[in-house]
Design a protein around this nucleic acid. Sequence first.
RNA 1: GGAGGCUUCGCCUAGUUCGGUCUAUGGCGCCGCACUGCUAAUGCGGUUGGGGUCUAAAGCCCCUCCCGGGUUCGAAUCCCGGAGCCUCCGCCA
Length: 420
Amino acid sequence: MIDLRLVRDDPDAIRASQRARGESESAVDDLLQADEQRRCAVQRFEALRAEQKQLSAQVPKAAGDARAGLLVRTKQLSAEVKAAEAAVAEAERTLRQAQLAVPNVVEEGAPPGGEDDYVVLRHVGDRPDLTSPRDHLELGEALGAIDVERGAKVSGSRFYYLTGPGALLQLGLLQLAVHQATEAGFVLVVPPVLVKPEAMEGTGFLGAHASEVYRLEADDLFLVGTSEVPLAAYHTGEILDLDRPRRYAGWSTCFRREAGSYGKDVRGILRVHQFDKVEMFVFCPPEQAHDEHLRLLAWQEEMLARVELPYRVIDVAAGDLGTSAARKYDCEAWVPSQGRYREVTSTSNCTTFQARRLNVRYRDATGRPQVAATLNGTLATTRWLVPLLENHQQPDGSVRVPKALQPFLGGRDVLKPVAR
RNA sequence: GGAGGCUUCGCCUAGUUCGGUCUAUGGCGCCGCACUGCUAAUGCGGUUGGGGUCUAAAGCCCCUCCCGGGUUCGAAUCCCGGAGCCUCCGCCA
């Protein structure tokens, strides 16, 4: 939800942002108008209500004609107040709709343009020199690590079993992420993965992402596609003490319908309906959000370095940010079998956009409540197994285990193909 | 799934019988001041929160007794619906 104060004080900033995203500028005028209408409605209601209160208080003290007169007037007022109150509610609904219609204001410096207009910030790590790389599925099946056939048999396409070394690898990866996060001061959270409509709505996932979300109709609950949802909703309606940023690391299974992705990435576990993820989530004062965003990115890169993956960092273009992000960086790991980089992390600075919708605030130096900023970023997911297996593969089909992961695989430094 | 109880300003609590003076009681905590040769005790004072108005403060206004409706000139209080918590019963991986 867009900041009304910004709309009033600097509507041109929002217009510029809308242009960068390739969105309409007229939404800003709608906002200004709705804001003014609400203001009038509130004023009218408050004036009427004050008069009603005052006169009502006189009723018990009055008698005879005076009392009768009062009752006539107060009765009339009662109806007027009720109408004015309804008008306020209506004006607020309209305003809220207008606020929701405008995506977050793009951060200064974000590249303009659409999906393909990202800017590559840097390449890190050496790509392996492989003449004919096996893909992760071929490797995973040979190692007895990934079983998509039985996944499909039991649950359908885009489901899989992680077995033996595959399961250990995933748990190790996530465990490593948890260690790193808790060392950095994050509070580890295992959140609910089924949430009420309000939580889904509040985090904005029922908008553009609605068709991506699994819904349990019998119970009116949603399966989350990321722990960002329960983490963001965790402090809904609260006023936090943000002397230091609140950093949470959520570990959860994530569920996605992948409705619009028929035919895309159908092989292996690159794009699946269910996966596990460790996600960083931060509440902080807005003026700290920019720096915090860069810290999140640094932590992601630290994690990639631990598991020795070559990757690049991209600065996502304005038109590809999604509604709630003001700036977004993705880390993309090298996938040898595809000869290209694929997204393995993403970090967004949502500034106050998400917190305003969820009504998460903090007290500033003067003790006044202000809307907090929220940020999120991936720390590790099941998808990481793809570049992990492929980049560390050996000519004989075995896979080298990065040092940091060896403790989680019984000390093994290499995974070897097994007879099936 | 069935029956009952509870929900008040940070925490505990009075108030709901019988609607108005509830602008919500008291305690704890917290803040300030005073006093005592220490941050302990005591005394006095203050303290619900949120929104708006305002350069700011003061002041003023609105909202707020779990949430949403209703009755009424007027609702913490009466009525209806919902949520959460707690008991008991039933059922159960």
